[in-house]
Design a protein around this nucleic acid. Structure first.
Length: 223
DNA sequence: AGTTGATCATAC
DNA sequence: GTATGATCAACT
């Protein structure tokens, strides 16, 4: 795959993204000489990483937006024929080690969600990767009500971390932003501080946007 | 059928 | 192990 220069403006990024709309992953893979994986199960993040390349993203695996100069985060989102998200959206890992050093204002969650370029992937169950088409991109900045929900969810989760309540740090909390495991498997553990200040181990977690929240974003911006 | 917990690839 | 990119599969 040839290297693609980072976009110099958000407008240019949007132009690039709009140019992808309507094309199938098969077409784009052929055009850019990329090798589509035989099995998405074995490379779950392939589509997202492919689109990053096509649009010139540069942040790599750093905890910052995909386009640092523009402050724009790219999210590919599988949607059905009605435009409904099929999955939740991973945002970032949860800092379980130093939660007291975290604040909402400087959090990676706030940084990444300040401006998101949603790129819908029209997806049907069992549909081959090559046949899936890119939808129209949407640039989203949270409104005041959305920010309030996100901050509230984030603070609720981080409070549990600060208190060492890792048993309560599950997917049942959070109106828009939920916490779920984020690891290679359930045997992966990370060292944290427990309820009584003692070192203990727990499963790494990540922040995810619930699909219902994402659905309202996509629908409100579609008109 | 929607949600929660589990899992896969890769770079460093 | 921790960060990125996510989807799968079991459970309710």
């Amino acid at each position: 795959m040839s290297a693609i220069q980072p976009p110099t403006s958000t407008a240019q990024l949007m132009q690039r993204a709009e140019a992808l709309a309507g094309h199938s992953l098969g077409e784009l893979a052929e055009q850019f000489r990329a090798q589509l994986p035989d099995n998405l199960l074995l490379e779950k993040g392939w589509i997202g990483q492919f689109l990053e390349h096509l649009l010139g993203a540069s942040a790599g695996s750093l905890p910052q937006p995909d386009f640092p100069e523009l402050g724009v985060e790219l999210k590919s989102i599988p949607v059905d024929a009605r435009g409904k998200p099929l999955e939740s959206t991973f945002v970032s890992v949860v800092n379980l080690q130093q939660p007291h050093l975290e604040s909402w204002h400087t959090s990676v969650v706030r940084l990444k969600l300040s401006c998101v370029l949603w790129l819908p992937i029209l997806t049907e169950r069992h549909q081959p990767l090559t046949a899936r088409r890119i939808g129209m991109p949407l640039l989203w900045r949270p409104n005041q009500a959305q920010w309030q929900i996100l901050q509230s969810d984030w603070e609720e989760a981080m409070e549990k971390v600060c208190l060492g309540q890792f048993d309560k740090l599950n997917a049942r909390f959070g109106e828009a932003l939920q916490v779920r495991p984020k690891a290679a498997n359930s045997r992966v553990l990370t060292t944290v501080t427990g309820r009584d200040g003692e070192p203990t181990q727990t499963l790494p977690r990540g922040f995810y946007l619930r699909s219902g929240f994402t659905q309202t974003i996509l629908q409100s911006l579609a008109y």
